[in-house]
Design a protein around this nucleic acid. Structure first.
Lengths: 183, 183
DNA sequence: GTCTATACGCCGATAGAC
DNA sequence: GTCTATCGGCGTATAGAC
């Protein structure tokens, strides 16, 4: 039993990857069951075996996000360069698994998907807590919103068929700003 | 002729208002022609007399945004408290006409609507220019992203049936941060 | 100018074969 | 486990009456 009970079906993960990719690349509207199934290399019926309906697929994606966010919070809490610097650096689109789920989930949030909005609030407060410990409660929001703004813009820029934008110069600006805020 | 040639049909504006409201309140997915027509108090056929198709309705909304943004840029450029302070203050959701079109348009951008994305880029560069003149090129992006982050969060918070969130405390934090950046 | 009626396609979901 | 076939519903758009 050991070794099998914990192993999730590969097809299931493939479907989730496809859903994530389509949300990022073509938006929520075009991320239909049909499109997801085609991208994942299964039929629509096959997809619906793994996820009984679309909501279940969304929930699975949000769980993936929770796991990756929790891991990142742990790294951020122990980052030698400080939580704030780590946060700004990681706010740049780098195509990491966390970046990908996060942008995908944001597409859902924008369509006013209630459950997704709840999860986002929780993630934000987790970050804010660590930022406050680093740069103080007064400046924490400033740093949080700077990172969010960077993310927001990167997300808009990565529209249909757009490649990850070259915003690394912006990060340097923001890191300099963080230094001034900390002083 | 004078006085009539410039007057746009009232029903047209009513339809546009309805579309805007629905985008804000229930998201892009639910802002269907049917829903817009019902909210505006006209029939679907009546709506499609004013706008031959949905794209035309979207374009009209984006033009409304352009007009309001241009007006705001003019105010921002001459703001006695400085462009940066004005920008942060106006990044808070206050339910102004500009706030409303902007959030509505963002709902469309998130669905990866190409035309909308283009307009957003133009708006951003307009703001950035004025901010650079105020706080310097090095810190302009930091201020821009702070404002964007605030807007982004307000937008997420104003989900289905949610009232404009009380984020005015955040603005004070950000204004304090701007002061430090300027120094 | 505004309405009703209707065509057409796509999306989500179910039934059941293999 | 994965497939094909199919249904019901909804969203966009057109035709044409008033």
């Amino acid at each position: 039993m050991i070794g099998t009970m914990a192993r999730k079906p590969v097809a299931r993960e493939a479907v989730l990857d496809a859903f994530e990719s389509l949300l990022i690349e073509v938006g929520e509207r075009a991320a239909t069951l049909d499109a997801v199934a085609r991208r994942a290399g299964v039929s629509k019926g096959g997809l619906l075996y793994h996820f009984p309906n679309k909501e279940a697929m969304i929930s699975a994606l949000l769980e993936r996000m929770d796991v990756l966010v929790a891991a990142d919070l742990a790294v951020m809490a122990n980052a030698p360069e400080g939580a704030a610097v780590h946060f700004i650096r990681s706010s740049l689109w780098a195509g990491t698994p966390l970046d990908r789920v996060f942008v995908a989930a944001t597409r859902l949030a924008e369509v006013a998907h209630a459950e997704t909005l709840h999860r986002f609030a929780a993630v934000q407060s987790g970050w804010l807590e660590l930022l406050a410990a680093d740069v103080g409660a007064a400046m924490a929001k400033a740093v949080l919103y700077m990172g969010d703004g960077l993310y927001f813009n990167a997300m808009l820029a990565s529209g249909p068929g757009a490649s990850p934008p070259g915003m690394s110069a912006d990060v340097d600006s923001l890191l300099a700003a963080v230094e001034r805020l900390r002083g």
